[in-house]
Design a protein around this nucleic acid. Structure first.
Length: 895
RNA sequence: GGGCGAAUAGCUCAGCUGGUUCAGAGCGCCUGCCUUACACGCAGGAUGUCGGGGGUUCGAAUCCCUCUUCGCCCACCA
């Protein structure tokens, strides 16, 4: 700890060492940092896929969570961040299938058991790499509680849930049209289908009447499904077709006779007003079929090829080949009336982007309406709140229109459905069981388990309690359920967030979180979502390597305001991440400077606040920085509390860079060097304000703040900033007078610097300055910071006197204090006249518009008195500032 | 088809309850500095019809309407 610090901050070694130290000390477990004290504060990490590789989306999501958990941990809560990984049924199965494909194998070559074993082997072998990556960005999750959704305990929870829901009639098996991915060969829920607008065509086709007396024209976007048509439907009130209802058509290509049925679901204004009915391949057609007792003819295989029930010449054709073939035949028969361009939404598999095929099959469903009702109520009563609030509307509308959840998947990787069938003649019993069965409880014959597995989300919707031990009544469960804040991206609002609310209410009787914070999405400068396929991603680990985890985190947090997306430029990492790295370096050097100047005596402070030093011993600058520091505590704390993390980060940035480094440290230097008078107080103030700044920044930049904080003298070897108390606002630090007066000192120095720059005064050359009284800036105030003014403005002397000298640079401060820098022959009178003239004109414009405002009868009578007063004051100030300038111009003899 | 969000400096964005941060920050740009914490720095500077139009108001970047552009979500018109 005592080796000299390098002038350039090098995060890579420091970060990994500190992370190891944190975990060795168990600082991320609530038990170790605050035994038995403080209210629990719990966040559940959205479990990443077990095979996932860290991308910026994870980076943002986990940084936000880490900021919140570190903030609450420092505030003394028993902060618990529960991490885990998701077995991710389809995604993981696809990964392993791809690996098999490289050896020319399919999962069917291996068979179910060895395939599943193979997936386990893969998952174990590659490990949860992503968890290690989350550590690299500083995530302070409690890794001792890491779960995997296929763990024994969570599997128990899944089974318990399924059985309970089944027993209440909320899980059922049904024969319906579901979304089917012909590539993944499984059913999907509605949420797992990405709708995408595509330019397609709509064909108007003639179906001849069976008796040869003409035809009926139908409109379709999917001509190939006509192979499975079993009717044509028209609206019952449609005059055009009323005479055809009940008659028969001869289905072209196939030659089947099909009826014309009346059904109110048909929109007479769309297409031709007549719709072909294919009950096995369209959800609406299925319903029409149900109502009219129509047969269902499934003309497609699971792979979306034409099945054996279709005419032989179509069998085995891919659905799009079949479309072409059908159209060719219809054209030859002269049955294509016309073709129109048609833009419509087509569903795609969210895992492989294959076009979804609506398919009739037996699946397991969860009846959602009874679960949705309490979830809606929780939101409407205000138990559950969204940040930003408008996300509550999405939540509400989804729940209001909720449809049953198809939970069975025709996959091998996942939780097997806990249902056993008996195939014995005369028994045929279906048993839903918490434990595995081998024999049928009804007849003692062999029991056969359902082949399917459950939707991945059927395990992840339980994690707020299953990760804590449920269904066992564990200590963790009673202590840490319900949690507090859920941090997520809006794209899994329905998949995961809303469902957790429902399961939490149903199984635990309480919402799992009271706050749902939905942050934005990481995009590139063209506002496209970062993705592997677009090649516009940024690898967070590359950023960590080049700029440090703190820089990554700061960049993400500062680029994010509530509810908006984060835009990062993948083509220019340097300008994207350098500002945050530069900030870290600035902080490092401020720390280095302070640490190297603590040799002399330091005023010991009993508590943690610099305001404890007696006021008489403080300089104006001391009082100013103490007040600014306290204001920053208030500002940052409120911002963190309100999830305005970017504002918290900006407030601390401003304090550290603009206040502490640019002004206070510059001001305090002479007092720190050697054994100067007041050095003890200066050291106390600089250490305390820096300490506060580090603590305020720690949630966002945990590594560098820890690295510096630990190095301060008197710090116990075991102390960590991650469990240091959060800085508290101290009203004794408030000091409006100091803020105002030191503000004028800053203004004065700035004015002199401006004059120097304007006239190209050599940096090494000292000049004189004369200050004459303004409203606030008295000789006493100047006296207090005389040395500071002289040093920072590079003066030989500053005097307080009315200035009548003619040749020099002039400026006026906001309180009408005027400043004069005599420059002898160096001054160009003409230049100074025009400079003052421009400034006077600017003020004149302000004065004029202000006079107009105050001359407005309406304004004076209707605006609040205090606003009017304030505006009057402004006018006076500007007027007088202008007068001063005009007088100076006269003095100079300007034309 | 329905709903939502965004549009402010060349770029990325703040600006919350209309008036004391009101036109801001960072990057980039220009000028000058290796001033013993930091050139990943310091000092100074230039840059805006606050997307267009209309309205409410004493007063609008801020509230309302409308249009334009971009983006997102939802939806069984085949």
């Amino acid at each position: 700890m005592s080796e000299p610090l390098a002038p350039q901050y090098n995060p890579s070694t420091i970060e990994s060492e500190l992370y190891r130290w944190w975990t060795e000390r168990g600082l991320f477990s609530p038990e170790s940092h605050a035994p038995g004290s403080g209210e629990p504060y719990v966040i559940q990490m959205p479990p990443p896929n077990v095979t996932a590789v860290l991308h910026m989306g994870h980076g943002l999501n986990n940084t936000v969570q880490d900021v919140l958990i570190r903030f609450e941990r420092m505030r003394g809560r028993r902060a618990l961040w529960v991490p885990g990984t998701d077995h991710a049924g389809i995604a993981t199965q696809n990964v392993v299938e791809r690996l098999l494909a490289e050896q020319g194998l399919t999962r069917f070559d291996l068979g179910r058991d060895s395939f599943v074993e193979r997936v386990w082997a893969h998952v174990r072998e590659t490990g949860a790499v992503i968890l290690e990556q989350l550590k690299a960005i500083g995530s302070s999750a409690d890794w001792s509680r890491t779960y995997f959704t296929l763990d024994e305990g969570l599997s128990q929870a899944v089974r318990e849930t399924f059985v309970q829901l089944y027993e209440k009639g909320l899980v059922y098996r049904g024969h319906y049209i579901i979304n089917w991915c012909p590539r993944c060969l499984t059913a999907l829920s509605n949420e797992e289908v990405d709708k995408e607008e595509v330019d397609g065509k709509i064909w108007h086709l003639r179906y001849p009447l069976a008796d040869g007396s003409g035809h009926l024209t139908i409109a379709t976007t999917r001509p190939e499904t006509m192979l499975g048509d079993t009717a044509v439907a028209v609206h019952p009130a449609d005059e055009r077709y009323r005479h055809l209802v009940g008659r028969e058509l001869l289905l072209p290509v196939v030659g089947r006779r099909i009826p014309v049925v009346p059904d109110a679901a048909v929109d007479p204004d769309f297409g031709s007003g007549a719709v072909k009915v294919t009950p096995a391949h369209d959800p609406l057609d299925f319903e029409i079929g149900q109502r009219h007792g129509l047969p269902t003819i499934d003309v497609m295989t699971p792979e979306a090829r034409i099945s054996l029930v279709a005419p032989e010449r179509f069998q085995g054709l891919d659905r799009y080949e079949a479309r072409r073939q059908v159209l060719t035949e219809l054209e030859h028969a002269g049955l294509v009336e016309r073709v129109e361009e048609h833009r419509h939404a087509v569903g795609h598999c969210y895992r492989c982007a294959t076009v979804i095929e609506p398919r009739l099959s037996d699946q397991w469903f969860v009846r959602m309406e009874p679960l949705a009702r309490p979830a809606l109520a929780a939101y409407r009563e205000g138990t559950l709140r969204f940040v930003p609030e408008r996300r509550g509307d999405d939540y509400t509308s989804w729940l209001e229109g909720i449809r049953d959840w198809c939970i069975s998947r025709q996959l091998w990787w996942g939780h097997r459905i806990p249902v056993w069938y008996c195939d014995a003649d005369g028994c045929g019993m279906t048993t839903v069981s918490r434990t595995d069965l081998t024999v049928c409880p009804g007849c003692g014959g062999p029991a056969r388990q359902d082949d399917d597995v459950l939707d991945t989300w059927f395990s992840s919707w339980l994690v707020p309690f299953s990760s804590l031990g449920w269904p066992k009544q564990t200590r963790d469960l009673t202590t840490y359920y319900p949690g507090h804040t859920l941090v997520s991206s809006p794209d899994i609002l329905f998949f995961w967030v809303a469902r957790m609310i429902m399961s939490g209410l149903h199984f635990m009787g309480k919402v799992p979180y009271t706050r749902i914070y939905l942050h934005g999405v990481v995009r590139d400068t063209q506002h496209r979502k970062m993705s592997k396929s677009l090649g516009n991603g940024i690898d967070p680990l590359e950023v960590v390597e080049r700029y440090g985890a703190d820089a990554l985190r700061y960049s993400l947090i500062s680029g994010m305001s509530v509810g908006t997306d984060v835009i990062l430029d993948p083509r220019d990492l340097e300008s994207t991440f350098a500002p945050a790295r530069n900030f870290a370096n600035k902080l490092w050097n401020a720390g280095r400077f302070i640490l190297s100047n603590l040799e002399g005596p330091t005023r010991p402070l009993a508590g943690t606040h610099a305001a404890e030093v007696r006021r008489e011993e403080l300089t104006l600058a001391d009082r100013w920085i103490i007040a600014r520091c306290d204001a920053t505590v208030v500002e940052a704390t409120e911002a963190y509390e309100r999830f305005r993390l970017n504002e918290a980060a900006a407030a601390v940035y401003r304090f550290i860079w603009s206040d502490l480094a640019d002004w206070y440290i510059e001001q305090v230097k002479p007092r720190l060097y050697g054994d100067q008078q007041g050095g003890d107080v200066a050291r106390a103030v600089v250490v305390q304000t820096f300490d506060v700044a580090l603590r305020l920044l720690h949630p966002v930049m945990p590594f560098i703040t820890e690295a510096l904080w630990r190095r301060f003298p008197g710090r116990p070897e075991t102390a960590s900033i991650s469990v240091a108390p959060w800085p508290r606002h101290d009203s004794r630090a408030q000091d409006p007078e100091a803020l105002r007066d030191f503000g004028l000192v800053q203004e004065l120095i700035g004015a002199i610097r401006g004059i120097r720059a304007e006239y190209g005064v050599q940096p090494g050359q000292v000049v004189r300055a004369v200050v004459s009284a303004g409203e606030r800036f008295t000789e006493a105030a100047l006296e207090q910071e005389r040395a500071t003014i002289i040093r920072l403005a590079k003066l030989s002397a500053v005097s307080f006197a009315p200035n009548h000298e003619r040749v020099g640079g002039h400026a006026v401060l906001s309180d009408r204090t005027s400043v004069f820098v005599p420059l002898g022959e160096a001054i160009d009178i003409g230049r100074e006249c025009s400079r003052l003239g421009t400034e006077a004109e600017r003020l004149l414009r302000l004065v004029e518009s202000q006079e107009k405002k105050l001359g407005n009868e309406q304004f004076v009578s209707r605006a609040p008195a205090e606003v009017v007063d304030r505006e009057r004051e402004k006018l006076t100030t500007w007027k007088e500032q202008r007068d001063v300038l005009v007088k100076k111009r006269e003095l100079l003899g300007c034309g």
